[in-house]
């Protein structure tokens, strides 16, 4: 599919002139489990993660040597991190009434668990788990991933 040049130009102009619009954070889920040293990484800031905190699209989650984090997203997807781990929520779109669905989760390092939710059920191809060396496509499932630092 080719995108007309004027669309690209218009998008770039809008993106550069309306930062408030382009950076509107989209809530994706909430932290349900947090212990030890656990952080949300948001726009390169480290925010101590607490149970109840909202997780936004583009947020990272990071744990120290004694940390753990568990998150439930709005489509019932669950993601958790063990110690010394980092994941990033690169994409989360859950609007089944408009047929818009998408989830891209990057496991940067450490150990993480993923349990699929409604997005994987409604549109399995819309879910992608990425690691530094591979891409994982899922058909309604639970997975665990380890990436050596």
């Amino acid at each position: 599919m080719t995108i007309p040049r004027w669309v690209i130009v218009l998008t770039l102009v809008l993106a550069s002139t309306t930062p408030a619009l382009s950076q509107e954070p989209v809530a994706a889920g909430r932290i349900k489990v947090a212990s030890g040293s656990a952080f949300i990484v948001r726009e390169s800031k480290m925010i101590p993660a607490q149970v109840g905190h909202v997780v936004f699209v583009a947020d990272g989650l990071r744990t120290g040597a004694d940390g753990r984090i568990g998150v439930t997203l709005k489509d019932d997807t669950r993601v958790s991190l063990g110690p010394g781990s980092e994941v990033r929520l690169d994409r989360f779109v859950y609007a089944p009434q408009d047929g818009r669905l998408g989830l891209v989760l990057k496991i940067v390092r450490g150990v993480a668990a993923y349990v699929s939710g409604q997005i994987a059920k409604l549109s399995p191809d819309a879910v992608r788990l990425e690691t530094p060396a591979a891409i994982v496509g899922v058909r309604g499932t639970s997975l665990a991933i380890r990436v050596e630092p």
């Binding site: 994982v136 309604g140 499932t141 997975l143 665990a144 050596e148």
Partner: peptide, 27 residues
């Protein structure tokens, strides 16, 4: 001997219902 960047991906039984999905790991 794990090298930096080595990865392991495991498929697990769903905690609810006990069904097993599928996954394709590719690069």
């Amino acid at each position: 001997p794990s090298r930096p960047g080595d990865e392991m991906i495991v498929l697990l039984r769903d905690s609810e219902g006990g069904t097993i999905g599928r996954a394709r790991v590719s690069n």
